[in-house]
Design a protein around this nucleic acid. Structure first.
Length: 507
RNA sequence: GCUCCGAUGGUGUAGUCCGGCCAAUCAUAUUGCCCUCUCACGGCAAUGACCGGGGUUCAAAUCCCCGUCGGAGCACCA
């Protein structure tokens, strides 16, 4: 019995079981696991919480890909919240706020809401005051190293038992900017003997002397730490499912103390490992890329060598291809290596059908053509006759790639033109009997006229490649994805009188 | 040092919660063949994995213990 007839037989015997199996199979169509406890919530609400310190690199795509996919699956809500609460060591880049939203849109998702933590300081202060009144926090002027020593041996800070009036007073002084960086912090009172030292009395607010780059937030000096800010915001914005990296594994544990004070329910949490991309020499980190750009090693965020979303976008990779690969990584907590070839495979599937074919000869050598037809007419796309053919005039010589030059007296097939024999005088036209290719194994190569070809620069991750494309290449539009036959796909970037620039997509 | 987490082919993943249908899924990769006036697309095939050791059991990728390896946190970064 084959699968179908087995299924039919089961339907007769036990329709309920059959239906159940069908339901399971449907479940399997989602590559991502179901969200924990999804049924318990009226609306699934998730947030991505990027730090706006630059446009996104490839690794960043995982968050919106997964959240966006879940949003579509559960008809949920997608918040982008910029956690820009460190104007100094994680200084926000003002342009990055919009660039990141733009990157998310490139991936094919539209956030339902965009928030900035730096707009919400007063809210954090209010909750801090409430916490202080409950006795859940204390101001502490111990230098970090000193506290760390006490903490590691399970001993409390001498400030721990201050009465809440004093704490409140000192906290207001923090808010008013009466302390300088390092002089005073507000600690959340947890359990100073907790077996995990990472959770003991963590810092909720600290002083930062450097003004925030956003004008609206430039006057604040007392800034919340991620665990405080994010914990408050997740609750206030009704986030039901938090998805984040393993580096924040302890965050949930820290924030639970906060939630317990306020008697809130902590959202469901999922963690995942880091994504490494193969195929890049450049280390994947926003600050490293930024540095390389400043040093002039890279031309910008969209340099073809940069492992950024702006770069692969310019190369003609569709956001969907990236999302598919990211979804394929699943939700495992261990670190994963993502092969660029997986993104390329997805992209090839998306662009092959639309990409028209053109000839691009890299560093061509000129060979005279003797006594042949005036022009060649290869198809625009092998699977779409309706798109018609190109016309490539021969003039009296053609350019072919060095590697394609045949041995003396050997034949070669100029694609879309015909068979030629290589002699001392150049290519002598032999005819268009295709059996030369089918039966005699004559190599089919691409070519352009020596006269009237279009100078093309193709930018690749390994540097620029120059050469000439057939004349009709100028008819393509900017943003078109084409396939240079026998070379690979490329995105048309600019056409000028001097040259056309393309970006190499992938083979 | 203290505390967490993880380990299935080259890569990613399914299966692990609730042991048997798993001599282990799917994708990608690589190789070969077919198709082809491209080294694209498509089709077919091959390659290749349960970290190690104990234990429980009629039966272990799955449960338990030990080890090994890897990752994360112990910041007035996010």
């Amino acid at each position: 019995m084959d699968a179908d007839s087995r299924r039919d037989r089961l339907e007769e015997l036990d329709p309920e079981l059959a239906a159940e199996l069908d339901a399971e199979e449907e479940e399997d169509e989602h590559t991502l696991p179901s969200l924990p406890n999804a049924d318990a919530y009226e609306e699934i609400r998730m947030r991505a919480a990027p730090n706006p310190n630059g446009p996104w690199h490839l690794g960043h795509a995982r968050m919106p890909s997964v959240i966006g996919t879940y949003k579509e699956r559960y008809d949920g809500h997608f918040i982008v919240r910029f956690d820009d609460t460190d104007p100094e060591t994680k200084r926000p880049d003002l342009a990055a706020y919009d660039l990141i939203v733009d990157d998310i849109e490139y991936l094919g998702f539209e956030p339902d809401e965009v928030l900035r933590a730096s707009d919400r300081l007063e809210t954090y202060y209010e909750y801090a005051r409430e916490l202080i009144e409950m006795g859940g926090a204390y101001t502490c002027d111990l230098p970090g190293a000193e506290f760390s020593e006490l903490k590691n041996s399970g001993k409390p800070s001498p400030n721990r038992d201050k009465d809440s009036e004093t704490v409140l007073e000192e906290f207001e002084a923090m808010v008013n900017g009466e302390y300088h960086s390092g002089e005073m912090v507000l600690r959340v009172k947890t359990d100073i003997t907790h077996k995990n030292p990472a959770l003991r009395d963590w810092v909720g607010f600290r002083m930062i002397d450097t003004p925030h780059p956003r004008e609206e937030a430039a006057d604040y000096r007392c800034w919340p730490m991620l665990d405080f800010q994010s914990g408050i915001d997740d609750h206030l914005t009704g986030v039901t499912h938090i998805i984040r990296g393993i580096d924040l594994q302890d965050s949930a544990k820290r924030q639970r103390f906060l939630y317990d004070y306020f008697d809130w329910e902590y959202p469901e949490v999922l963690h995942w490992g880091h994504v490494q991309l193969d195929a890049y020499d450049v280390k994947i980190s926003t600050s490293t890329i930024k540095q390389l750009i400043e040093d002039g090693e890279l031309d910008g965020w969209d340099d073809p060598r940069a492992p950024t979303l702006r770069s692969v976008r310019r190369r003609g990779i569709r956001g969907d291809a990236i999302v598919e690969s990211m979804i394929g990584l699943g939700m495992s907590t261990s670190d994963v290596d993502l092969a660029m070839s997986s993104i390329y495979a997805n992209n090839r599937e998306l662009v092959d059908d639309t990409a028209n074919r053109y000839f691009f000869v890299r560093d061509g050598v000129s060979v005279p053509v003797i006594e042949g037809p005036q022009a060649g007419h290869p198809p625009l796309h092998p699977d779409h006759d309706d798109r018609g053919t190109r016309t490539i005039p021969v003039s009296d010589a053609v350019l072919i790639e060095q590697d394609d030059v045949p041995a003396l007296d050997d034949r070669v097939w100029l694609k879309g033109y015909g068979c030629v024999r290589y002699t001392d005088d150049g290519f002598v036209y032999v005819g268009e009997d295709i059996s030369a290719v089918r039966e005699d194994g004559v190599a089919v190569i691409h070519w352009t006229p020596d006269n009237g070809s279009v100078p093309v620069r193709m930018r690749t991750a390994d540097g620029d490649v120059t050469g000439h494309a057939e004349p009709e290449f100028t008819e393509t539009s900017v943003d078109d994805i084409v396939q240079f036959e026998r070379i690979g796909f490329a995105r048309v970037d600019t056409h000028t009188d001097e040259e056309s620039v393309t970006y190499y997509t992938h083979p």
